[in-house]
Amino acid sequence: MIRYIIRRLLWAVVLFVAVTVVTYIIFFIVPANPALGLCGKACTQDDVKRVQAYWGLDKPVPVQYLKFLERLVVHQSLGRSFATRREVNDIVKDAAPVTASLVVGGVVLWMLIAVPLGILSAIRPRSLLDRASMVFVLVGISAHPVWLGLIFSFFFGYKLGWFPITNYCDFINPSTDCGGPVQWAYHLFLPWATFAILFAALYVRMIRANVMETMNEDYVRTARAKGAPEHQVMRSHILRNAMLPVVTMLGMDIGLALGGAVFTETVYALPGLGKTAISALDTFDLPTVQGIVVFSTICIIVFNLIVDLLYAWIDPRIRLS
């Protein structure tokens, strides 16, 4: 188990270095000079040089990368935005709760849909419910989140007026005109639904398949042969095993989900990490984009680590090997 944890930790470090290097490289093969954008149209050649020197853009890329790493590790700083001169740490600090709200609520909603639907349609294959859930899966998988978001905001927001179309309300402090858990959830409901449907559809299918496969396992038959009632067979023998791969999948998909959050944030104008990164890309605001990528990477890595450890903890075959 200790060896397993150490291996996982080392892997996390490797992953981190790889992702940051890749973002660095991508940025520097994009043929645009951020210094030009930084000082504006009226800049002379000399001004550009000075700006470049100020931001350290005249150094070779590896040196810049190392400086960036040093700043990050020693000072826990992501640098300053080219565009607004704000600390990237602050930008991330403002945007992260929005994305976290969206993703956490979305994941909860998607599991709330997928787990019962997946299990029920596995118990009664070819039933009405199973067929209905297959239709849901098809629609969910084929609908793009942006399209879904537009449809949702048009019908439930604009036509029916059930939910607000844009805006984010803070969960804790009502800094703006809205705040508190109720407003927060009310404003996030449509984004959650938009975000959750694709994944819910994928997970319904996966959970259904897992449960159906597990139902045919020999040890399930053993449990029935012992005289265990159906609900106990389901809970203690089928679900416990069928959900193991779901936990791993969830860990892997959380990165993908962050990607999906970008679309949802854009449609609903939520000031989260995704939308902030997109805006920053428009202005070649390297530190902001880099900062958001690095922060998201750390989040994903930490999350994967937690899921791996959780998985090892619930699966004795890993824990004890």
Binding site: D218, Y219, R221, T222, A225, K226, G227, R240, I314
Partner: peptide, 21 residues
């Protein structure tokens, strides 16, 4: 009756026990 008056064991002991308990 099942498991108390009539009990059963199966062919493949490798798969007949629940791996997580």
């Amino acid at each position: 009756i099942r498991g108390s008056e009539i009990a059963m064991i199966f062919q493949d002991p490798m798969t007949s026990l629940n791996p997580v308990h």
